[in-house]
């Protein structure tokens, strides 16, 4: 898609239809905004470059992670082999397991069993759970009814999963982006989207999430995910998106 538009842009430039050509009137203002335009392109190039860098970084990290995992697996196999060898040695030495005998007297010897101290540690949800479709953390949109701000049905479960994740990982930040369908007043919808985002934020903080961890904003009807004016599109657009930052610190 992007390529398509840039092809059009190139075609326009080639045919000399770039813009200034048919901007009649106020030449001064046209020139005035030129630097801005350049700045924009520079910025977008910068953004593209940043994006590429980021993608490269992610690829690199994935490679490193793979190598690490392979090394760990090799070590585990080695350890298992060593343990087995030790056990075999013990068997060969003819060592018998200790057992109480009746020949030792009337009073049975009661040997205290050493307490097995089991330390239990809850495993925290890892960031990879975010992409596991069977995990509620993978659901990062909460949908709403028309003109409604209530978190309904199994979305409560989704909110709870994210609340747990956030309390487990206080260094992670969450941005809640409220959206509405495209019908009605843009300004009213902006306020409505904000209210939806705030409702989700309140639900999270009630579940123990620190308010500073969550920022709620609204795009109102300005950034519809689904185009068109059918009910399906409207439903898709009435939602709060959860956008995480700082996830790279979670492993």
């Amino acid at each position: 898609m992007k390529k398509f538009w840039s092809a059009i842009a190139v075609a326009l430039l080639v045919t000399g239809c770039g813009g200034k050509g048919f901007m009649g009137g106020n030449r001064a203002s046209v020139e005035q905004r030129d630097p801005f335009e350049k700045q924009e392109t520079a910025k977008s190039k910068e953004a593209d470059a940043a994006q590429e860098d980021k993608e490269f970084q992610i690829l690199k990290e994935q490679e490193e992670l793979k190598a690490k995992l392979a090394a760990q697996q090799a070590q585990a196999e080695k350890d298992a082999a060593a343990a087995k060898a030790k056990e075999d040695d013990a068997k060969a030495a003819g060592k018998k397991p200790a057992a109480g005998g009746t020949d030792e007297g009337e009073n049975p010897l009661v040997a205290p069993l050493p307490a097995t101290t089991l330390t239990e540690q809850a495993l925290k949800e890892s960031a990879t759970a975010m992409n596991d479709p069977s995990n509620p953390l993978s659901r990062r949109s909460i949908y709403f009814g028309y003109d409604s701000i209530g978190v309904e049905g199994d979305y409560q479960q989704v909110v709870e999963a994210h609340a747990k994740f956030l309390t487990d990982h206080p260094q992670v930040k969450l941005r809640l982006e409220g959206n509405t369908d495209i019908r009605g007043s843009r300004e009213y919808n902006l306020a409505l989207g904000q209210r939806r985002a705030d409702t989700v934020k309140r639900a999270l903080t009630l579940l123990g999430v620190a308010p500073e961890q969550v920022e709620s904003v609204s795009f109102g009807e300005e950034k519809p995910r689904a185009m068109g004016d059918g009910e399906d599109a409207h439903q898709e657009n009435r939602r709060v998106d959860m956008v995480y930052t700082g996830l790279e610190s979670v492993q």
Binding site: G24, E40, R186, G220
Partner: peptide, 16 residues
């Protein structure tokens, strides 16, 4: 509708 020119442009929405 003539002499239209923009005074602000970016990738995010503008309203009101």
């Amino acid at each position: 509708g003539f002499n239209s020119q923009f005074i602000l442009a970016h990738r995010e929405p503008i309203m009101s």
